[in-house]
Design a protein around this nucleic acid. Structure first.
Length: 664
RNA sequence: GGACCCGUGGUGUAGCGGCCAAACAUGCCAGCCUGUCACGCUGGAGAUCGCCGGUUCGAAUCCGGUCGGGUCCGCCA
C-alpha cells in the first residue's frame, strides 16, 4: 500500500488542458505570457487577409485568440493561411506577443496579445457551413439549426447555455453530496405504471408478447430505496412521457429526483430551498433572488392572491375580491351577469393594470379576447383617467357609485385600469391569473434578471373524477395527507369503496409541495404515505380495488410490509431550471440534441422505419400502416445523411436521399 | 385530434397576379492590399420562389392538397 504512493502520478493529466496538439486553449493566453512559445489548436473563426499579412481568429470553446501570419517572418505558414477558410481545424505554433500599442482589442479576453505564427498545420478542412458560426445573433431557421446541431453548438449562445447547464448540474451534485445524499441510478427499462401520461414502451425479445415501459419518473424506485435504508437518495434522471410537445416539454427530459427518509414536509422544503439558493448563487451570481427565504403559500392562498399554483412573485397586481363592495346596499348590483355569479356561489375578482387607463380600444379589445380564450365569458373593465373621471362599458348598469367603490377596493388610482372577471371560482382565478402574468410581462413590471422562487403547498388531495366516479389523486397517488386531515380520508357513506362527490375526502389536503420560479412550475413533491392502512384507504377512494391495487403496485406494497421509514421527496425539472437560468423560454435551447415539436430528431432522422428483421424477431407486425411508406414521405428530407458503415443498407430504407451540397 | 403563423440563391429577408428565370444584405469564388479584428477595394458565380394539383391569356404572388418548422388549445404535472 505504501509503495503505491511512491509511484509518480502524472498530475498534469488532471489539471491541464494541454495535449500534443496544444499547449494552451484559445482563451488562456494573456499579457504576462508574452515572450512564451505556444501552440494552439482550434477552428478558424475568421480570416482577415491583407496580402502579406493575414490574421486568423482561432476559436475553441474556451475563447478566441488572434494569430498573425507574416509573409516575411514565416512564408510557409503564411502560404498555408492563404488556403485556410472559416471552420477549418488548424494547429498553430509561434510566439506569444504583446500587440502593438493601439491595436489591442478590448472585446477579446485575449485581446492584449496575439500569437505570431511560425508554423501552421491544417488538421481538417471544412465546407462552408449552412449558417453563420461566427455571428452569434444571426437568426437561423429552427429546422436548420436542429439538423446541424453540432454546428449550432459551436456558436456562442448554444455553447454558453450548455456550459451553464453543466454548471447547474455540477452545483446540484456538489450540494447533494455535501448533504449526505447518495447518487444512485435506477433502470430505464421498467414496468408500466398508471401515472397519467402515456408510456413509451419497449418490446421484449426474451419474453415475447411483453413490453417494458420507460420511466415517467423513478417514483416507485426511489421509494423502494428508502425502504432499502438508503436514507438520502438523488439522481439526475432521464424521464420519458409520450405526450404532445410544447416549448417547455420534450418527450425525454431530465429531472433532479430526490428522496429523504425520516422527514417532515418542512425538512424536504428546507433542504431544497437551501440547495436552490446555493445553486442559483453559484451558477448565476449576477441574478438577484426576489425573496429569501422563499415565500410559502398554501394552494388556497396562491389561487386567491395570484390565480395560479405557480405564481410569478416578481410583481404585485394581486387579485382582489370585489364581491364585498358589490354586495353593499343589498338587492343586486344592477348588472345581471354579476348578480347571477354572486347568486350561484361564483367569484367576482379583479386586477389593476397600472397606467393602462389610456389603453386604446384595440388594446382593451385584445385583453377581452384574451380573457375569452382563457375561458371567461367576458371581461369587464373600469378605468379612472388622469382627471379622476371613471369610464366603463357597464357604467349604465352598475352606476358610478359602485364603479368607484370597486376601484377603491381594488386599490386603483388615477390612470389605472381595473379588469374584472365574474365566473365560477376556478375560472375567475385562472383567467385573472393568466391576465396578470401576461400584463406583468407586457407592462414591464418584472425585472427579467430577478429569480423569484416560491413554494405552494397543501394542495387538495383529490379531485372528483365524474366520468369514472372516483377521487383522483391531484398529484401522486402515494402523496400523504396532512396529519390533521387524516380523518377526512373517508366516504360519506362509510364504505371506502363507494366514493361520492360530497365525501369528506374532497376537503383533505395533501402533504404536497410545488416549487415555482418566475411563474413556471419547477418541481413538485410530497411526503408519502408509508403506512399500509392509510395507503389502502387512499387507494380505495381513488377507485382501486384491493386486487387491482396489488396488480399495479404489488411490489411497493409488499416492500412497505418489511419496514418502511417515513419518507418524502421531490423532483425538479432540470431542463426548465436551466432554461430559466439562461433566460430562455424554450427548453430546446438548453438541450444539446432536442426533438422538434412533432417528436422527430432532424439530425439523426429518428424515429425511423425499423428493419423487418427487427420487428419480426420481436413478434411484431405493423397493422394499418405501411412502415416503408414513411421513408419517401419526407418532402424536405434531411439531406446527405447516408450513414455508411454503421449498418448494412437494408430494404425499406430506399428513401430518396438528397445529395449533399455541391463541391466546396 | 384542432387552430394559427411561416417555407424565395448557402444564411437572413424583400417582392404578394404581368414591369421578376426574381431584388437587397451577408456568405461563397477570384484578384489586389503589411495592423486588421463584422478589415477594405474590384470582379464573378449562385434560387424555375418546399412539393403536387387547380384558377388565369399569364402564378413566387390567388385557391386546394401535401410535406417540413414554429406557437397555442386539447393532452401532459
Amino acid at each position: 500500500m505504501r509503495a503505491m504512493t511512491d509511484t509518480p502520478v502524472p498530475t498534469h493529466a488532471l489539471d491541464d488542458l494541454a495535449t500534443p496538439f496544444r499547449t494552451h486553449t484559445c482563451g488562456a493566453l494573456r499579457a504576462p505570457d508574452a515572450g512564451r512559445e505556444a501552440r494552439l489548436a482550434g477552428w478558424v473563426h475568421r480570416r482577415r487577409d491583407h496580402g502579406h499579412l493575414i490574421f486568423l481568429d482561432l476559436r475553441d470553446r474556451h475563447g478566441i485568440t488572434q494569430v498573425v501570419l507574416d509573409a516575411h517572418e514565416a512564408p510557409a505558414a503564411h502560404a498555408v493561411a492563404a488556403r485556410v477558410r472559416p471552420e477549418f481545424v488548424v494547429s498553430v505554433a509561434g510566439t506569444v506577443t504583446r500587440r502593438l500599442p493601439g491595436t489591442e482589442n478590448p472585446r477579446l479576453a485575449t485581446g492584449e496579445i496575439e500569437l505570431r505564427a511560425r508554423e501552421l498545420e491544417i488538421l481538417s478542412e471544412a465546407q462552408t457551413p449552412p449558417f453563420y458560426i461566427n455571428e452569434p445573433d444571426a437568426p437561423v431557421d429552427e429546422a436548420v439549426r436542429l439538423r446541424y446541431r453540432y454546428l449550432d453548438i459551436r456558436r456562442e449562445p448554444m455553447r454558453d447555455r450548455l456550459l451553464l447547464r453543466a454548471a447547474l448540474v455540477r452545483a446540484i451534485r456538489d450540494a447533494h453530496h455535501r448533504a449526505g445524499f447518495v447518487e444512485i441510478e435506477t433502470p430505464i427499462l421498467i414496468k408500466s405504471t398508471p401515472e397519467g401520461a402515456r408510456d413509451f414502451i419497449v418490446p421484449s425479445r426474451l419474453q415475447p408478447g411483453t413490453v417494458y415501459a420507460l420511466p415517467q419518473s423513478p417514483q416507485q424506485l426511489k421509494q423502494l430505496l428508502m425502504v432499502a435504508g438508503m436514507d438520502r437518495y438523488f439522481q439526475i434522471a432521464r424521464c420519458f412521457r409520450d405526450e404532445d410537445l410544447r416549448g417547455d416539454r420534450q418527450p425525454e427530459f431530465t429531472q433532479l429526483d430526490l428522496e429523504m427518509s425520516f422527514v417532515h414536509e418542512q425538512t424536504v422544503m428546507d433542504f431544497v430551498e437551501a440547495m436552490a439558493i446555493e445553486v442559483s448563487r453559484t451558477v448565476v451570481p449576477e441574478r438577484p433572488l426576489q425573496a429569501v427565504p422563499f415565500p410559502r403559500f398554501t394552494y388556497e392562498e396562491a389561487m386567491e392572491r395570484f390565480g395560479s399554483d405557480k405564481p410569478d412573485i416578481r410583481f404585485g397586481m394581486e387579485l382582489v375580491d370585489l364581491a364585498p363592495v358589490l354586495r353593499e346596499g343589498g338587492e343586486g348590483t344592477g348588472f345581471r351577469v354579476f348578480d347571477e355569479v354572486l347568486g350561484t356561489g361564483g367569484r367576482i375578482k379583479g386586477i389593476v393594470a397600472p397606467g393602462m387607463a389610456g389603453a386604446s380600444r384595440r388594446e382593451v379589445d385584445e385583453l377581452v379576447a384574451l380573457a375569452r380564450r382563457y375561458g371567461a365569458k367576458g371581461l369587464v373593465h373600469v378605468s379612472i383617467d388622469a382627471d379622476g373621471a371613471v369610464h366603463s362599458p357597464v357604467a349604465k348598469f352598475l352606476g358610478e357609485e359602485r364603479l368607484r367603490a370597486m376601484l377603491g377596493a381594488a386599490g386603483a388610482g388615477r390612470g389605472d385600469l381595473l379588469l374584472v372577471v365574474a365566473d365560477e371560482a376556478a375560472v375567475t382565478a385562472d383567467v385573472l391569473g393568466r391576465l396578470r402574468r401576461e400584463l406583468g410581462e407586457r407592462l414591464g413590471l418584472v425585472d427579467p434578471a430577478v429569480l423569484g422562487y416560491c413554494w405552494v403547498h397543501r394542495f387538495p388531495m383529490y379531485q372528483w373524477d365524474a366520468d369514472n366516479h372516483r377521487w383522483d389523486a391531484t398529484h401522486n397517488p402515494f402523496s400523504g395527507v396532512v396529519p390533521e386531515d387524516e380523518p377526512l380520508l373517508a366516504t360519506a357513506s362509510g364504505d371506502p369503496y363507494r366514493p361520492a362527490p360530497d365525501d369528506p375526502a374532497g376537503r383533505a389536503r395533501a402533504m404536497q409541495y410545488d416549487i415555482a420560479l418566475n411563474g413556471w412550475e419547477l418541481g413538485g413533491g410530497s411526503v408519502r404515505i408509508h403506512r399500509r392502512d392509510l395507503l389502502e384507504r387512499s387507494f380505495a377512494l381513488q377507485g382501486y380495488s384491493l386486487e387491482r391495487m396489488h396488480s399495479l403496485f404489488g411490489g411497493i406494497l409488499e416492500a412497505f410490509d418489511f419496514g418502511a421509514p417515513p419518507h418524502g421527496g421531490i423532483a425538479l425539472g432540470i431542463d426548465r431550471w436551466a432554461a430559466l437560468l439562461a433566460d430562455q423560454t424554450n427548453i430546446r435551447e438548453v438541450m444539446a440534441f432536442p426533438k422538434t415539436s412533432s417528436g422527430t430528431d432532424l439530425m439523426l432522422d429518428a424515429p425511423s422505419v425499423p428493419d423487418p428483421a427487427q420487428y419480426e424477431e420481436l413478434g411484431l407486425r405493423f397493422v394499418g400502416i405501411a412502415p416503408a411508406a414513411r421513408a419517401d414521405a419526407a418532402g424536405t428530407a434531411p439531406a446527405g445523411r447516408e450513414r455508411e458503415g454503421e449498418r448494412a443498407p437494408s430494404e425499406g430504407h430506399s428513401g430518396t436521399h438528397v445529395p449533399g451540397g455541391g463541391a466546396a
